[in-house]
Design a binder for these strands. Structure first.
Length: 424
DNA sequence: TCATGATTTGTCC
DNA sequence: CTAACGGGACAAATCATGA
């Protein structure tokens, strides 16, 4: 049983550097949507002590002083480079689980244990040569250990050069290593659980690995119990098949500016529902209900706060943009209150099932359904070919006063001819 | 009282 | 110039409800 976890280094920053090599060695960071928080940092930025998740407006001055280069996030670019990285990695194993935009697991069962280090190096070199993104590789018996091995590879522990294979460590070396790493670095141990463990004097990974299982189960949860098992080499989290359809779809966004009126809110909800319905159809699913929510800015404690949410049941499960928008706007009218400054809204599609598997009812209008399928297929095809949002429904509005801030975005180098820079 | 469904919580990246 | 703090997904835990 051997598993590899391959994780791109500072992924978003690395994507920006692929197309601007002069950023190499310079402090670079990438901001979240709306230019809100720091979500990716180069090593130089980490060395300056800037923290992950820190709001940009608090750092802007400091960043200028240090000559930090900040980008708005460019998901079109990151998605495209991610696809290339994942596609290359898929050739290294018959089984791959894409865990997130910048990391995946590979099943290395049956490979020669002595050659795994070299195999990991081959992955790194191939990706660097073909895409230009640096990655690290962690190899171990379970997912949790592979994540940890990757962490060690990134930190460069014990002369490790981008690949770390726990299979090469004996018991004593393993214990010593684990005793040197804080428990919060384990996959699945977040802030809250870290605090709880600390209160029980469980400080290092070695402490956690040797902790009493029953006690962990009763004081925390079955999930943490499994994590402890995994740290001991007992596999509890299996490799998941790719292409499994999602169980929920969320589209939500903070606004670039506060909005107050029902009209602007309706536009945003219609727009988000359109995006959600596209994802739904891409998955080949239909939704049974849609939830709508709006809220004010929770960070402005001195102004009146309001959170509204509701769930609207559809007559029958659907993937039709217009039907979904109709339901969403109905929900919005119920929860809308005038007199508040709204900062964010969103929709959530629930009760997802494979299209076609839904129970047909006596009153289904099959002719109307067939027309809807054609309409939606055409809409998706045009938008795919001509660019997202070329054809939209009137309800989504045109001007989008509420659109998010993206003041420092790089061009879509790989997906839009018109955004290729001039050759100097 | 139990089983089920709905909502909240915690985590990850 | 001012004001300015992400988004999406999942599973388990917890709460609410109704037979």
């Amino acid at each position: 049983m051997a598993l590899a976890l391959i994780d791109c280094n500072n992924f978003y920053v690395s994507c920006e550097r692929v197309f601007q090599p002069k950023l190499e060695g310079k402090p670079v960071l990438v901001l979240s949507n709306n230019d809100g928080c720091v979500v990716s940092r180069s090593n130089e930025v980490k060395a300056l002590g800037l923290r992950m998740g820190e709001p940009w407006f608090k750092l802007e001055k400091l960043a200028k002083q240090h000559g930090i280069i900040a980008f708005s996030s460019n998901y079109t670019l990151y998605d495209d480079l991610s696809t290339r990285v994942m596609s290359i990695l898929s050739t290294f194993s018959p089984r791959q689980e894409i865990y997130s935009i910048d990391e995946c697991f590979l099943d290395l069962d049956g490979f020669d244990p002595q050659s795994l280090m070299a195999y990991g190096q081959a992955m790194r070199q191939t990706i660097m040569r073909n895409v230009g993104i640096p990655v690290c590789v962690g190899i171990a018996d379970t997912k949790t250990l592979a994540k940890l091995a990757n962490h060690c590879a990134k930190k460069g522990f014990a002369g490790v050069d981008g690949v770390c294979d726990f299979g090469l460590l004996d018991e004593a070396q393993r214990s010593a290593l684990f005793a040197s790493i804080p428990v919060g670095d384990v996959w699945g141990v977040g802030r809250r659980i870290s605090e709880g463990l600390l209160a029980m004097r469980i400080k290092t990974i070695e402490d956690l690995r040797t902790a009493n299982l029953k006690r962990i189960r009763s004081q925390f949860s079955v999930v943490l119990e499994r994590t402890v098992q995994e740290l001991n080499g007992v596999s509890c989290f299996q490799l998941e098949k790719i292409g499994k359809p999602r169980q929920q779809i969320i589209v939500s966004r903070s606004f670039g500016t506060m909005i107050t009126g029902l009209n602007d809110l309706s536009e945003s909800i219609a727009y988000f529902t359109t995006r959600a319905a596209e994802k739904l159809r891409r998955d080949g699913s239909v939704a049974a209900s849609i939830s709508v929510y709006i809220h004010t800015n929770p960070f402005k404690e001195d102004v009146p706060q309001y959170n509204g949410a509701t769930i609207v049941q559809l007559n029958q499960p659907s993937d039709d943009t217009m039907e979904l928008i109709g339901a969403a706007l109905k929900g919005l009218k119920e929860i809308y209150r005038s007199g508040f400054h709204y900062k964010k809204s969103g929709v959530l599609l629930m009760g997802l099932q494979r299209k076609g598997s839904a129970q047909a009812t006596l009153f289904d209008d099959t002719d109307k359904q067939a027309k809807s399928v054609n309409m939606m297929r055409t809409l998706d095809a045009i938008n795919k070919k001509m660019g997202k949002g070329i054809v939209t429904l009137a309800a989504s509005g045109i001007k989008h006063r509420w659109a998010m801030r993206r003041e420092r975005q790089s061009p879509n180098y790989t997906t839009d001819w018109f955004e290729l820079p001039e050759v100097e």
